[in-house]
Simulated assay, not measured.
Amino acid sequence: MKQTQQWRKLDGTRIVRPIEDEIRSVLVREKEAGHELKVCIGTDSQVKGEDIDFATVIVFIRKGKGGFMYIADRTVRKKMSVKERMLMEVAASVDTAYRLTRLFTRYGVDMEVHADINTNPSFKSNDALKEAMGYILGMGFAFRAKPHAFASSSCANKMVQ
């Protein structure tokens, strides 16, 4: 799954520079505007025939003043179990979080990694919950699963439909 990602804004504007540079300028701009930020990173996927579409989002929440997000899409052609797909989603989110964590720490921005995994054992995605939670927490990130994982289950979900 390691590949160069093409990031864009919600309005479709492509990000032509490295995402780290884009996020650094966003953090400077938002801090100068006096906004208190929180960031949530999540990934969702959708099986479409032989392909699986993935979307990873970086959601910025301006406390009390709305938010905005960045999106990276990719398609994988591979048969996989629900558990494997859930763990690929988590890996994409963790990879993005890892690339950006130093910036968020430097600018004092709290970050969470959201997993589109149901905490109810009757759902198939729950099979991946323990591994996903261990991976995310083991990397030192705050973890959220459904129903509190809006970055993956709402924002990224809308990008892969």
Rank of each mutant, 00 (worst) to 15 (best):
L10C: 02
D11I: 09
D11P: 03
D11A: 04
G12E: 06
G12M: 06
T13V: 09
T13R: 09
R14G: 00
R14S: 07
I15W: 00
I15H: 00
I15E: 02
I15V: 15
V16A: 06
I23S: 04
I23Y: 00
R24G: 02
R24T: 11
R24V: 07
R24A: 12
V26H: 04
R29H: 02
E32R: 13
E32H: 04
E32W: 00
A33N: 12
A33G: 01
H35K: 09
L37V: 13
L37P: 10
K38L: 13
V39H: 03
V39L: 06
C40A: 15
I41W: 03
I41V: 14
G42W: 04
G42A: 10
D44K: 01
D44I: 06
D44V: 09
Q46Y: 12
Q46I: 14
V47K: 15
K48E: 14
G49A: 10
E50F: 08
D51R: 14
D51H: 13
I52Q: 05
F54I: 06
A55C: 08
T56G: 01
V57I: 09
I58N: 04
I58L: 10
I58R: 04
V59E: 08
F60K: 09
R62T: 10
R62V: 08
K63A: 08
G64W: 10
G64C: 11
K65P: 00
K65V: 02
G66F: 09
M69P: 01
M69G: 13
A72R: 03
D73R: 14
D73F: 01
T75V: 15
V76Y: 01
V76F: 01
V76E: 13
R77I: 11
R77D: 03
R77N: 13
K83L: 06
E84P: 04
R85E: 10
M86E: 15
L87Y: 03
M88S: 13
M88K: 09
E89I: 04
E89F: 05
A91L: 11
A92L: 15
A92D: 10
A92Y: 10
V94E: 03
V94D: 01
V94R: 06
V94H: 03
D95H: 12
D95P: 00
T96K: 03
T96S: 06
A97V: 11
Y98K: 14
Y98I: 08
R99I: 07
R99W: 01
R99Y: 03
L100G: 04
L100P: 08
T101K: 15
R102V: 05
E112I: 12
A115I: 07
I117M: 06
I117L: 04
N118Y: 08
T119Q: 07
T119R: 10
T119E: 09
N120E: 12
N120I: 07
S122W: 04
S122D: 10
F123A: 12
F123M: 12
K124I: 05
K124G: 02
S125Y: 05
S125W: 05
N126G: 04
N126P: 07
L129Q: 02
K130Q: 12
E131A: 11
A132E: 03
A132G: 04
M133T: 11
G134Y: 06
Y135I: 14
I136D: 01
I136C: 04
L137Q: 14
G138V: 12
G138L: 05
M139W: 06
M139D: 03
M139K: 14
